[in-house]
Each structure stands twice: as structure tokens, then as C-alpha cells.
Design a protein around this nucleic acid. Structure first.
Lengths: 142, 142
DNA sequence: CTTGAATCTACAGTAGCTAGAGGATGTAAA
DNA sequence: TTTACATCCTCTAGCTACTGTAGATTCAAG
């Protein structure tokens, strides 16, 4: 039986985050001691590992919820899980492309700005200048 | 003179976002019409373009605030701007690495899961299985 | 039995917006 | 000129995914 602190350590999660997951229904309400402290078993450890790993891979809590639902009802088709993975893959490739452009720009900025005063430095112009970027005007959210 | 709506269109920003930037002091309080509507000039267009472009490049609002401060006081050293860019570059490379790993994993998931039932599908195990990942237990934040 | 770390609940705060209510303003056609 | 309608205003609340704090309680080791 694990305390919440030990579960946190084992999964690289903050204690509050575990309680938060419980609050939003991602984690089940665990058993309690006489005194009211949470105690966890292997099932909960597995579930939390799953959640954390999924988060590290970029899944939203909603996506994780879907996956856990699938996991809880294995008679459903795997196509759903596949669809979720495909959706995530698309998003990931978009983010990668954006980050690549960003990295190029930042590298250029760092190279061009080798000491001197702000007035002579192109860092700020690069960011201000509209024409130098392919302004797509779409979402920039994570 | 631009209305807030036109400024929004020109910069790919939502109207509310512009007001939000004003609220947190990133954008200055603009002039108003008799009736109290905001009107913007070229200076504000430039500033907002700068902000939006920076956001698209992944800068936090705090970092942008720093850059704008530099921009407002060009007598300061460019080293500061350079340091900000370097910090961002480091972060970007971290994110890229994480996304690369994620993409690999997702691709594998999509390939391995070609129809069938959840029970036979490795998608869920891949995410649950602790041993298959290099658990770093560091921040996963955007 | 005491001490001190860990836990409890409850609430507030974070970033960076986004959405909605309910009303005022600006503009263009009839 | 009037009227219609898009756009604007302020204010408040909500979103995601946590994180932090306060003050009280519980657990485990010595």
C-alpha cells in the first residue's frame, strides 16, 4: 500500500496533481486509513503511470480520458484508440514544423547579435518586421 | 486610424486578446473616439505585430515584455536581448527532442494498431508500460 | 511519548487567453 | 433622417492543467 507521497515519487507527479486527477475523475477515489489518508495499490500505480506517460507524450487530459475509457471497456474497437493516436500525430507534426521555423529564426538572431547596442542589433527588427515571416494567422496555442 | 477590429484582422489577433494585452500593460492605452471606442495608429500596429510574431515564435509574454523594454530603451546593451533569444533557443530544442520521441511513438502506435479489438492492440500497453520509456520525471509543461 | 515529516481540506493563483451578457456606438442604405 | 446592423464597450466568468498556501491532523520512527 502506497501513500500519496510515495505514489507521487514513483510516477514523477506532484501530490497535489494526484489529488487534482482524483477531483476531475481521472483517478478513482482510493481507500483511506482510519485517519483519512489515501492509500494506493498497484492498479492505481498503473493507471497513474499511464496518465503521466500519456501527458509526457503530449496527450490532453481529455484524450487520456478517452483512452482510459477504452481500456476500461476492451470489447470496443481499437479503431478509436487508433484515431486518437492519429489525431495526436497530426498535431505533433504541426508543432514540430513550427518549432523548426522558430529554431532557425532564433539561431539567426543569436548569431547576428554578437554584442553591441540594441539600436544596432537586428533581434528586435526580426521580430517586429512583418514581411520576413510567413504570417499564417492560425492558432499558436500549444 | 484603425478600429480594434481592424487591428485584430491585420495582426491575426482576437479583439479580446488586444484588450487583454492592454489590461496587462503589454499594449498602451490607445486614444478613444467621443463615444469611447479605441482607435489605433501605426505605432500600435507595429507593437502588436511584434508581440504576435514573438508569440508565434514561442516567446512568453514575460520575455516579450523584456524585449519591448529593450526596444523602448535602445541605449541598453543588446546582450540582454541575445540572452533572451538564447534562453528561448534552449527551450525550443528541448521541446523538439520531446516531440521527436513522441512522434516516433505515435507512428509506431498507429502502425501496430491496424484494426482489431482494444484487447489485442498495443496502443494502450505502450502508454501504460513504464519500462518502455525513458522516464525523466522532469517538467512536461509547454 | 514525543517529534517532525507527511497528509488532510479548502481555497486562491498561474498563463494566456476566450466567451458571454447586456448595452452603447458607428456607419451605410432606404 | 431614420433605421438596421455590425461593431464596439465593460464586466465577469470560464478554460487547461496544474501549483501553492494555510492551518489542522495523522503517521511512523526513535
Amino acid at each position: 500500500m502506497l501513500t500519496i507521497g510515495n505514489l507521487a515519487k514513483k510516477t514523477g507527479t506532484k501530490v497535489q496533481t494526484i489529488r487534482y486527477y482524483e477531483q476531475i475523475g481521472l483517478m478513482p477515489e482510493p481507500g483511506r486509513t482510519e485517519g483519512g489518508q489515501r492509500r494506493y495499490g498497484d492498479a492505481e500505480l498503473d493507471r497513474l503511470s499511464f496518465i503521466r506517460h500519456s501527458r509526457q507524450l503530449g496527450f490532453s487530459l481529455d484524450a487520456i480520458r478517452e483512452l482510459l475509457d477504452l481500456s476500461d471497456h476492451p470489447e470496443k474497437s481499437c479503431d478509436e484508440a487508433d484515431a486518437i493516436a492519429r489525431r495526436q500525430l497530426r498535431q505533433v507534426e504541426q508543432r514540430m514544423a513550427r518549432l523548426k521555423a522558430l529554431r532557425t529564426e532564433l539561431k539567426r538572431m543569436v548569431h547576428e547579435c554578437s554584442g553591441g547596442r540594441t539600436a544596432d542589433c537586428r533581434v528586435l527588427e526580426v521580430l517586429r518586421d512583418h514581411s520576413e515571416c510567413l504570417t499564417e494567422h492560425d492558432d499558436i496555442g500549444a
